[in-house]
């Protein structure tokens, strides 16, 4: 288990966290650190932190409901590439139907339960939920900087 950001050069961070909400703070810290290193504004960093937090919280919540869910982990890669920050969150097992990635998002105030979806799609420029042969299912968030 790794619970601290591991440097992979100045603009890339890899994390592996257990499926527990208590580790969300570390993920947000890693996003904030990368954004600070790459001179992303405080406000864009806050948006990306929130979008990543929403996706991780949703995945943790759903994975923990599965058998052995609490023993699983999330693999998270953050990096800067060609004018954007990219965050990849990979998890084991079958695809999680992630309401935070539902489309189209509902505007806040209409349905508080759909706010996570609105946050993710409002605060990042591109969202993908894809299967990678090596990493399993991955949610990828891209934010232009």
């Amino acid at each position: 288990m790794q619970n601290q950001p591991r440097g992979r050069g100045p603009e890339q961070i890899a994390l592996q966290i257990p499926c527990r909400y208590s580790y969300l703070r570390i993920v947000r810290q890693a996003v904030g650190d990368l954004c600070a290193q790459t001179c992303v504004s405080e406000f864009k960093a806050a948006q990306l932190e929130m979008a990543v937090d929403e996706v991780c919280a949703e995945l943790i919540g759903q994975l923990r409901q599965r058998p052995e869910g609490g023993g699983r982990s999330l693999q998270i890669m953050l990096g800067r590439q060609s004018g954007e920050i990219a965050v990849q969150i990979c998890y084991p097992g079958d695809k999680v139907e992630c309401p935070a990635l539902a489309s189209p998002p509902v505007r806040p105030g209409e349905d508080a339960g759909s706010l996570g979806s609105y946050v993710v799609q409002r605060f990042v420029d591109r969202v993908e939920h894809v299967h990678d042969p090596e990493s399993g299912w991955c949610v990828r968030l891209h934010k232009r900087i």
Binding site: R25, R28, M50, D53, E54, A57, A112, G113, L115, G116
Partner: peptide, 13 residues
């Protein structure tokens, strides 16, 4: 130092 969407939703409710 941070507030999630679920927490914001709870406050609005």
């Amino acid at each position: 130092d941070y507030i999630s969407s679920a927490s914001l939703g709870a406050l609005i409710g």
